[in-house]
Amino acid sequence: MANPQLDELLARAGAAAGRMADLADGYAAITGEASDARKVVTARVDGSGGLIGLSLDRGALRLTPAELGELIVSTALVAAQRAYAERARLTDDFNREFAEYLGAGETAGTHPGNEGDR
């Protein structure tokens, strides 16, 4: 016995699960990169802010260990901020799409809290 409302609900749930998997894939693909103004240090981070790449120019040899350490940390921080900004953008896009998706279900009368279903 076919139940069109149940079929629609299951299709929508499957689509939502697929979109959530896409979001996870998007998070996994995020990287952030930054260089200091003199291009002595270039840092690359993953979507969680973990350092995955570090390049030092010859100019690094002219810095004290403390100066170099500070430059590495500050450059990696900028790279992480860029990665986090991309993560926030993906999350905002997902939340907006999901809210629209839920709103479409409510107008179709399939939302469990919809008073028209009772």
Rank of each mutant, 00 (worst) to 15 (best):
A28L: 12
R12Y: 06
E106T: 12
L68G: 03
K39W: 09
G103D: 08
L54A: 05
F98M: 15
A79S: 07
G32H: 08
A85V: 00
A104L: 07
L61K: 10
M20K: 12
A43N: 01
G103T: 11
P65Y: 06
Y84I: 05
H111F: 12
E86W: 00
R118G: 04
A66V: 09
D7F: 09
G26I: 13
Q5F: 08
K39P: 01
I72D: 10
L51G: 05
S74N: 07
E67K: 11
D36I: 02
M1D: 03
D36V: 07
Y101N: 10
G14W: 11
A76L: 06
D22I: 05
D22H: 03
V41K: 13
A2C: 00
R58E: 10
Y101V: 03
S35Q: 14
L90Y: 01
L51Q: 02
Q81S: 14
L77S: 14
A24S: 13
M1A: 15
R44E: 03
A80N: 04
G50Q: 14
R118H: 08
A60Y: 06
D117G: 02
D117S: 04
E100I: 10
D57C: 02
T42S: 10
I30F: 05
D7W: 11
Y27F: 14
N95W: 00
A66I: 06
A16K: 04
G49P: 04
T110L: 15
R118I: 00
N114V: 02
A60I: 09
R44P: 00
R58T: 07
R96F: 07
P4Y: 04
D57Y: 03
G69R: 12
E67D: 12
A17H: 06
L9R: 11
R58V: 08
L10I: 15
A37R: 10
G50L: 15
L9Y: 11
A104C: 01
A43S: 09
T31H: 09
V41C: 13
G50V: 13
R89P: 01
R44W: 02
A88R: 10
E100A: 13
G109Y: 02
A15L: 10
A29L: 08
A99M: 08
V45E: 05
A76E: 00
L68N: 04
G53T: 14
R12H: 07
A37C: 00
A2S: 11
Q81M: 15
V40W: 04
A99N: 14
S48W: 00
D57F: 05
L77M: 10
A79G: 03
Y84S: 11
T31Y: 01
A83I: 02
E115M: 01
D46M: 00
E8K: 14
A34M: 03
G26F: 10
S48T: 11
A80Q: 09
G59T: 06
G103L: 13
E97S: 10
L102W: 05
L54H: 06
A80F: 05
D22Q: 15
A37V: 06
T75S: 03
G59E: 02
A29V: 03
R44F: 01
S55F: 12
D46N: 15
R82Q: 12
A15H: 12
L6P: 07
G18Q: 09
L63K: 02
A15Y: 09
R96Q: 10
R118E: 11
A60T: 13
H111S: 14
T110C: 02
A43Q: 02
L56D: 01
E8T: 13
L61E: 12
L71Q: 13
G103W: 08
A11Q: 05
L56W: 06
V40E: 06
T107I: 11
D36C: 07
E70Q: 07
E100H: 04
A79T: 02
